[in-house]
């Protein structure tokens, strides 16, 4: 455990000196919290009861009888952007692990590291946790800022409760970390094959595409993300993570990496 901790602390000491990584860990969560808060702020009292009937049908699924049309629209808009909180656990680990693994390649620090009695599992666990923990912390922080801000901006407790629906809590607190794990493992596998941190980062960024498809799918009214769908997604990610952890330890072959990496 001490070796894993050593790797985690070493990674943080190294990667957080990189401005790009700092930007993604600090600025991105603030941005993700600010956008839905701005929507809440801008849509306060902006809709009359007459306009309610003109809203798309999918909006109605977000509304209850106690909500006015304006409040209902607020809940709908913010619910759309809740999916954006899932970008953080995908994007942040890829930025960190792209630099931490390929950084070892380019600075030729991996061979001395592999010459120590560290196991491949300890090394990968250290590197994965170093990418995973800041991503989860940033997601939770971002969601915390959003929750606090919406509590301050929304006078009606029913609206606030509708926004804090359990499906979003499951998404943020369960699906988020599972998505981070997907991102880390994909980064490890990509990093084992490419030599440029930017290439690894760009390839890992493609992971966001399915998430954007879900976002636009819900936005267009093709489907509505409910609690069952979120739980099914979490189970699916759990399975994917187990497969990816196995694959990444297989791809990370000490000998191949030492003799092939130039």
């Amino acid at each position: 455990m001490k070796k894993v901790q050593t790797i985690v602390l070493k990674e943080w000491a190294e990667v957080f000196r990189n401005r790009m990584v700092l930007f993604s860990v600090i600025f991105l969560p603030l941005l993700m919290a600010a956008i839905p808060l701005a929507i809440i702020f801008a849509s306060r009292g902006s809709m009359t009861s007459e306009q309610y009937g003109e809203m798309p049908a999918q909006v109605e699924t977000f509304c209850s009888a106690e909500l006015s049309s304006g409040e209902c629209f607020q809940v709908y808009m913010v619910s759309q952007f809740m999916l954006m909180f899932m970008i953080l656990p995908l994007a942040i680990p890829s930025t960190i692990s792209a630099y931490s693994i390929i950084g070892e390649k380019t600075s030729r620090t991996l061979e001395p590291l592999l010459a120590t009695p560290i196991t491949t599992f300890e090394l990968l666990a250290g590197k994965s946790l170093a990418a995973l923990l800041p991503a989860i912390a940033a997601t939770y922080l971002s969601f915390g800022i959003f929750s606090l801000g919406s509590w301050l901006l929304i006078p009606n407790p029913t609206v606030f409760a509708a926004m804090m629906d359990p499906r979003w809590l499951i998404a943020v607190f369960l699906v988020g970390p599972l998505l981070s794990l997907v991102s880390v493992n994909v980064s490890v596998m990509i990093s084992s094959r490419v030599t440029d941190p930017r290439a690894a980062e760009q390839l890992t960024a493609l992971l966001v595409v399915p998430l954007l498809a879900i976002f636009f799918g819900q936005f267009a009214g093709f489907f509505v993300i409910n609690r069952e769908l979120v739980l099914a997604g979490a189970l699916f990610l759990l399975l994917i993570d187990a497969i990816l952890i196995f694959l990444s330890t297989q791809v990370f072959q000490r000998e191949t990496i030492l003799t092939r990496w130039k």
């Binding site: 000491a13 600075s107 120590t116």
Partner: peptide
Amino acid sequence: TETPGLYDNLSAEYNLRIFANLYE
């Protein structure tokens, strides 16, 4: 190794401390 392979952004002391921990 052929190249020193040090963590350039980290101090000399921290570079050694990492390896002291890894070698237990």
